[in-house]
Amino acid sequence: MSDEELNSVGWDAIDQAMEKVYGDQEPKHYGTMISYMLGGNDPLDGISVYEAKEPMEHWHFVTYGFSELHEKESENLEVSGYGFELTFRLAKKHNETEPPSWALNFLQNLARYVFNSGNVFKNGDYMDANGPICLESDTELTALAFAYDPELPKMDTPNGTVEFIQVVGITADELEAMQIWNTLGVLHICTEYMPQLITDLLRTSCLHNDKVVEAIETGSETEGSNTGFLFNDQITWTPGGKKFFKRIPAMMTIGAKQAVIIGKVLKGRQVKEEPLRLVSNEVTVVFSFSDQPQLIEDSLEIQLNKKAVEELIEQLQPIEKEFSIPSLENIAFKIVKTEVKDSEGKIVETIG
């Protein structure tokens, strides 16, 4: 028996947490044949799947590999690895005897994102999947939210703490609601329609319910938006200058897909009086709030008052165009078409 097999304290801790929920149920376990460290394709060492009966029949997935499963290797003694493992609750089809393979690949894909980028998932995060979370389905679920698993509290292990973060499939309009208000608020309201935040590929949006819409509107209007930054790979910045004694304004480019949501989030950030950062691979532009609107070009900061926010929101539509607003000098805006691509890089939709 190898040293690694002898020391599996992190792995054992996950097993023990699951035993508190499922007793002696033997999970279906799907291990990785070739370690990621040795050139394999799958970052996770394994995924276990339990059969849950309440509040409706579903598969309960738990990952092994974001935390330190064996020897302690990271320098942070208080946190094990990335500090979390993912769980996923998926509604079980009638007479289904094995969990669907797409869900296993789905969790491995999320792991690739974390391992390649270093970005971790936290309670209250969200992510746009830019298409159905299950490619084999015509599901309306095209985005993800992340929240604490309701049955698995944070635990201490010999390698540090580990949280269980549950992945939740959500619709495009639910994602937008989370952006203009906050993830956990929307999930809390929707729990009545998706108990234990079980992902059901067949469900429709919670926003078809007027009470849900009203609660979200009230929350966003009174509390504002928790979205402090939006990533848009189409954001660019062209500095202003002079040509033949004429002032040329700076130009900010925005992708059409996010134009409307930028306006809605700006409105919510104004309620909080907290800045919104628009981030791309090239540049970060900051919208902040002040009594006097102005462009501070050295720091790429656009200060807005209430009138300027209203003028900007009116123009932020998913239409290819250039525009400026009366309240702001020395800057113009350009909205360009967005090409939405599937996982294979094929264009599936053009916006704008």
Rank of each mutant, 00 (worst) to 15 (best):
L266S: 07
L266K: 05
L266A: 08
L266T: 07
L266D: 12
K267V: 03
K267S: 04
K267E: 13
K267G: 00
K267M: 02
K267I: 00
G268M: 04
G268F: 12
G268D: 09
Q270D: 08
Q270M: 10
Q270W: 06
Q270R: 10
V271T: 14
V271E: 14
E273H: 08
E273F: 05
E273D: 13
E273M: 06
E273A: 04
E273G: 03
E274L: 07
E274M: 02
E274S: 11
E274F: 04
P275G: 07
P275A: 03
L276C: 06
R277L: 03
R277F: 12
R277V: 03
R277C: 06
R277N: 14
L278H: 07
L278D: 13
L278W: 11
V279F: 12
V279D: 12
S280I: 03
S280E: 13
S280N: 09
S280M: 03
S280W: 12
N281G: 11
N281E: 14
N281F: 09
N281L: 05
E282C: 00
E282S: 11
E282L: 03
E282I: 00
E282G: 06
V283K: 14
V283I: 15
V283L: 04
T284M: 11
V285C: 09
V286G: 01
F287T: 04
F287C: 01
F287P: 00
F287L: 04
S288H: 09
S288D: 15
S288R: 03
S288E: 15
S288T: 14
S288V: 00
S288C: 05
S288N: 14
F289P: 06
F289A: 05
S290Y: 09
D291G: 02
D291Y: 02
D291A: 03
D291C: 00
P293G: 01
P293A: 01
P293W: 02
P293F: 01
Q294P: 00
L295A: 08
L295M: 07
L295P: 03
L295Q: 08
L295D: 09
I296L: 14
E297H: 06
E297I: 05
E297P: 08
E297T: 09
E297F: 10
D298S: 15
D298C: 05
S299H: 11
S299A: 11
L300K: 15
L300G: 05
L300H: 15
E301F: 04
I302D: 13
I302G: 02
I302T: 02
Q303H: 14
Q303C: 04
Q303E: 13
L304K: 01
L304M: 09
N305L: 02
N305E: 09
K307C: 05
